[in-house]
Design a protein around this nucleic acid. Structure first.
Lengths: 358, 358
DNA sequence: TCAACAGGATAGAGCAATCCCCTCCTAAGG
DNA sequence: CCTTAGGAGGGGATTGCTCTATCCTGTTGA
């Protein structure tokens, strides 16, 4: 019965075990493992060797409790199902990897009550900093963020009142800029295709900026088509079919993201629609998927990775300098990439709405 | 100076604060917040009210230390940059949301030493369970996983020796099955396009299974093309161009993932190659991107979401029942979806390799 | 010889959970 | 109506593991 050693003694290793194994005090072991304080190279060696031999893994639970600080940075994003947020995470990772900080992710699902729950959960771990998506939060969420006493960075969006720091772009302006480019290119009968925007505030702001700028150019959105659920090529295709079915004379299609734009593009090409002559189209995000399509859809790059990097850097700075907030505002400027689907020189010849310089 | 209340008192709230505010003992507050033990509705009410009013967030650091247990499940995946792992995460999330457990993600970047580091970091939080990707780990990683004394599920792959539980598919078999389907359809001059597989063991196993099964049918891979870096449509396009440039007489292209398969498909269509008549092609993964392309590439669905669900369920079961491992083996069977690019009836007429039933 | 200092030891804090106990209320039986 | 047993509700003391602050020792150099 007792012939074979129990393979898993299941007695948790502690600092004491390491200290006994290496013949020094727990204190010294702690100093070695934390790389703080003065310890001779020989002692350090001895301790590290013992730790490795025993397979000791420091207990951050106890460590965090004792030191009242924890090297975690909470990151709350709406979803992982389109490519934009994974890239933001990459940017965050990239920066934090050179610091003692470690990111922890949570998903809000574009749902404020759920965001609230996730945030509560995160705060219960007393992180050193938080990165949250967008500026719109429930009152309780805002209260928690304020009360946390740690640096908070709101990312992706600039249009609103930040709680502390903010890194992103103005979606209103992005929409407006695209509208101006479209108008300047001579397109006049414009259709919009995008998500039902109950909670995607950034898509909504883009739409507002878009229609506003069009209005200033004396143009109205001729028709629109909304969808809910996942964004895929098929969605874009189907929406485009529906919209063009109703409105065959549209000459521009503005999509709220690149994925559905790509679907729309494929639909148009298959149906022999001349792009960008007879019809222009544009998406949003600048996802790399676009390289490789028969034509490259016009889009705007929002520098997702850079957003992550900048946000992480703010947090890292605050933590390093012991600040509980920075109040920084980092405004990135997305640029239009006309690709192959937005003619930049307006070839209109029918006289109406003729551009000035013709 | 002192007119306005200091907005951030910055004194951390503890159970004691709540207990004082509600006039009961810390003990009782703890019971209420943990929903354990008997507390009258009135007392509960009082406590909850006080907690809410103060904005108290329980300290899991202290809680974890006291109870010697923490409701975290570590999840280590290689990357977020293709759609497969985000979907696995969704599956995990879906199951864990109905439990007290909470997932924590880490990225291994297909790099064993980095995986080791991430795992170490995770274990320092003493999670209740772990989900890791693949069966190939460094010796130190395996040692840590064994010594952790918690349930471990290795996901995605079945071909190898699991440490504890395993959920996935046999990539070797998946590759072999696709090879058989291709051979049965009458294709003979087959090209392979995929990642350089220094560390993507699953892609390698698929390739091995693929070539092995082809060999049994008396066929060899005629040519191949490898790439490194991100998978995008452009990559697939470029690789296909290169391969067909060298080998114009190939009649089938097998890609190691759907993204590059889609790029290759677009290339072929643009160049007027008859698919699936003159040339067939297939990818791997069954990503939803495929719906919406001009033709739907053949692929195999590996049920990523289901893998996540099953893995999470195993962990949840173990935690609920206090087990430190389950040793379960869940084998999922991917199925071939021929799409539009793998003709299922072989129309060959040149006599050689003619199928029996003609 | 003494001061200064590096290296190492000791004690206690940090917050919540657990174990064990007490109190008070209720209900049943005498 | 009183007594008492049982149970539910609530409290006190202790524990978990590490880090911080403080203190002590031995050594070195002037």
């Amino acid at each position: 019965m007792t012939l074979s050693d129990p393979p898993r003694p299941r007695k948790p290793l502690t600092l004491r075990d390491v200290s006994e194994a290496s013949g020094v005090s727990e204190m010294t072991v702690s100093r070695v493992l934390r790389a703080s304080g003065d310890v001779t190279a020989k002692t350090r060696e001895k301790v590290l060797e013992a730790a490795k031999r025993l397979g000791y893994v420091p207990n951050r639970i106890a460590g965090g409790l004792a030191s009242q600080r924890v090297n975690l940075v909470g990151v709350i994003i709406p979803s992982l199902s389109n490519m934009v947020f994974p890239e933001v995470l990459s940017g965050i990772n990239e920066v934090l990897e050179n610091t003692p900080l470690q990111p922890v992710f949570g998903l809000s699902r574009y749902d404020p009550p759920h965001e609230e729950k996730v945030l509560f959960e995160m705060l219960s771990w007393r992180p050193s900093g938080l990165i949250v998506t967008g500026l719109e939060h429930s009152e309780a969420t805002r209260a928690m963020l304020r009360a946390a006493g740690i640096p908070v960075v709101e990312i992706m969006d600039l249009d609103g009142e930040p709680l502390d720091s903010v890194v992103g772009i103005s979606h209103r302006r992005a929409g407006a800029e695209m509208a101006r480019a479209i108008a300047a290119a001579g397109y006049r009968r414009i259709g919009f295709l995008g998500t039902k925007m109950p909670m995607d505030h950034r898509a909504r702001k883009r739409f507002e900026g878009f229609t506003g700028a069009l209005a200033r150019a004396g143009i109205e959105v001729a028709d629109h088509e909304f969808y809910s659920g996942g964004s895929g090529l098929a969605t874009g295709r189907e929406m485009t079919r529906a919209l063009l079915g109703r409105n065959p004379d549209l000459d521009f299609l503005y999509y709220s993201n690149d994925m559905i734009a790509a679907g729309g593009l494929l639909y148009c090409l298959e149906n022999g629609i001349d792009i960008p002559g007879r019809m222009g189209l544009a998406g949003f995000n600048g996802i790399e998927l676009l390289d490789g399509l028969p034509l490259k859809p016009a889009t705007m790059d929002i520098q997702r990775r850079e957003i992550g990097r900048r946000a992480a850097r703010i947090i890292a700075d605050c933590v390093a300098r012991g600040l509980s907030g920075a109040g920084e505002r980092v405004a990135l400027t997305p640029r239009i990439d006309p690709g192959d689907t937005l003619r930049m020189a307006p070839p209109r010849t029918d006289g109406q709405d003729r551009p000035d310089h013709v």
